[in-house]
Simulated assay, not measured.
Amino acid sequence: MSGVPGRTYAGIRVGVLALLWGSTFLWIKLALDGLSPVQVTLVRCALGTLTLTVLLFGGRRRLPQGGATWRHIVVAAFFCNALPFGLFSVGEQTVDSGVAGVLNATTPLWSVLIGLAIGTERGLRPVRLAGLLLGFAGVLLIFAPWQQSGLASWGALAIVGAAGSYAVGFAYMGQHLVGKGIPTISLSTAQLLAATGLTTLMVPVGGLETVHVHPKALIAVVVLGVFATGITFHLTYRVIADEGATNAATVGYLLPVVSVGLGAVVLDEAFSLRVAAGMVVVLVGVGMTRRQKRAAAPEIMQNPEGGDPRIVEAQHAEQHAEQDAEQDAVK
């Protein structure tokens, strides 16, 4: 597919991805009306695992082999799934879904700092340093610590912690999982499976609360697990295979806009000029930190889409697309 129809189709698919990803925070908010944060996280991971398992075996793939690989998968699942998913659910008990989406977009900023700490960043060019400082200034503007009734709460800190957790997980995946010849669908399925197991361990702590089953919460958690966590993985791989990682990365810059818009329209969340200004500053800062030399392949461990592990895995898919095609031909 090429020309105007091809570009139109690509634009529609990018829009669908942005809507699914950006709606994650809305579904979490709605699910919390009937479930505890631990319950939301567990059901989300379990449904996402089930969805990817169907895709895995439907594509005649299998889970990764080897104890060493699985140890790395468990660590990645903790930092990229179990911990941030849980922190987002905890945070959204007190923070609007739209603001959660904006704070989630700070992940690339934390990735730059972690890259400098572990040596994957060879220093910062002025434009990226300015972007880093500008991004954190935007976060400060959103938090408004000078206001006693501002967003500087434990909930907001939990969400920022989730964004930082993503960054740690991406760096770990870049060093121990990405580029090892394992199909991406196998890694993502195994990772969500491990995350489900890790979250299950937390059930005695916060998962035994009474579940208030009602249609809104039930629908929200199902959509969150199946579509926002499972199906979106598969759609991302298709974008990577057809259009490359760069186009897929651009989706991430739409996520805060989607989350804020859905929060305001569906949940009637307040949207002040200060938060709007902070969102713009964060996105500009993130965009500046993403300005880099194209030859820098190790930059995969940064999160170009602003907070979700799916882009990192999607970049992995691009690297191994030809290898997977050859394996299919052999079969």
Rank of each mutant, 00 (worst) to 15 (best):
S2D: 12
S2Y: 08
A10K: 11
I12G: 13
G15C: 08
S23W: 04
L26V: 05
Q39I: 11
T41G: 12
T41L: 05
T41F: 01
L42D: 00
V43S: 01
R44I: 08
T49G: 04
L52P: 10
L55H: 05
G59P: 00
R60D: 12
P64S: 05
G67T: 15
A68E: 09
H72D: 15
I73D: 00
A76S: 12
F79N: 01
L87K: 01
Q93G: 15
G98F: 00
A100D: 06
N104R: 07
A105M: 06
T106D: 02
T107L: 02
G115L: 09
L116Y: 11
L124G: 02
P126E: 11
V127K: 07
V127N: 04
G131T: 06
G135D: 01
G135R: 05
A137R: 04
A137F: 11
V139F: 13
I142T: 11
A144T: 11
P145N: 09
W146V: 10
G155Q: 04
A163Y: 01
A163S: 15
G169C: 04
M173N: 10
H176G: 02
H176S: 09
L177E: 04
G181E: 09
I182V: 15
I182W: 05
S186V: 08
A190R: 07
T196A: 13
T200Y: 03
M202I: 13
V203H: 08
G206A: 14
G206C: 05
E209D: 15
H212L: 14
L218D: 03
L218C: 03
V221W: 00
T229P: 03
I231T: 14
A241Q: 15
N247W: 05
A248Q: 05
A249I: 11
V251F: 02
Y253C: 05
L254Q: 06
V266D: 03
E269F: 03
L273S: 13
V280A: 15
V281Y: 08
R291V: 15
A296Q: 08
A296N: 14
A297G: 05
D308I: 15
D308H: 13
E313S: 10
E313V: 11
Q315S: 10
A317Q: 14
E326K: 14
K331H: 12
